[in-house]
Design a protein around this nucleic acid. Structure first.
Lengths: 140, 140
DNA sequence: TAGAATTCCTAGTAATACAATAGGATTTTC
DNA sequence: GAAAATCCTATTGTATTACTAGGAATTCTA
């Protein structure tokens, strides 16, 4: 029932890029400072995010990363799914791994949990997160 | 975002005991055969379940385990919480581990997810699961 | 009262996944 | 051509998880 740092750091990174939307690319160096995550670790989260087409990179000095779509068109489920296995239990993704699936009463429970978390993540866009971030920043 | 086998096997074990409610204790040997989990591994799930008072043991030949309450009075959250860390992220249980908690927009998301899964688990009792199990068994 | 069946207890191990680091190649700007 | 970035691959450390092992203690039954 644990979420890995990949997914968590990755969404923070995406939010960081989103907050600079329309103002040019964000470098890992800057991101690393703001988010207090090492550049080297952030570097590893980038390829999967690029692979699913959520971000675009600009190489060389002055380069960095930008979103490929408007923040309101990217939801957290997309981000999480590209970075980690979102399924709480293997049998949900590949029912073949367990011969008990059909007669297993608990199977349905894990499925219900997966669906509810996916719904939450899908309902939240980066634009929503930007809004929340602003509210939080103003309060403190 | 993964759930450990402890929690999953544990709930299956509890359901197994529940299905024998009122008919005497269930031995690990029998449970192991039905659930296809080694006795030795099941043995390790027992102490935490006993510690929170969900089951009672009867030692010696003919012994085994019984529920301490009616199946309708035991929910899955109690079981899971005794067996594994149910929090998807450490900062939810102990906000001190991360100084960013207050300004972290993603924190609220993980919290929402935790609450929704906890609600699902809390809403399901072993009696519900027994019912589901019977439906599944009759169908196949 | 012996022996079989069971829970109880503690330790140990093997495998896996996770988190993080290292070093250098490539691209682009100025 | 130097600096600032991304890009790529490998490696290491570490923690957790899953599982096994061996034997002590308890209780039932014949």
């Amino acid at each position: 029932m644990k979420m890995s740092t990949r997914g968590r750091y990755g969404t923070r990174a995406m939010l960081d890029i989103a907050l600079n939307y329309g103002k040019g690319p964000v470098s890992l160096k800057d991101m690393a400072q703001r988010q207090e995550i090492s550049v080297k670790y952030l570097e590893q989260l980038i390829p999967p995010l690029k692979a699913v087409g959520l971000i675009r990179s600009i190489r060389g000095a002055g380069g960095g990363y930008t979103l490929t779509r408007h923040p309101s068109k990217i939801n957290l489920l997309e981000i999480m799914q590209s970075l980690e296995r979102t399924s709480p239990v293997d049998c949900l993704d590949s029912p073949d791994v367990c011969p008990r699936v059909k007669k297993c009463a608990t199977y349905d429970v894990w499925k219900e949990i997966q669906e509810s978390t996916n719904n939450i993540l899908r309902s939240l866009t980066l634009a929503d997160m930007m809004e929340r971030q602003h509210v939080k920043s103003n309060k403190s």
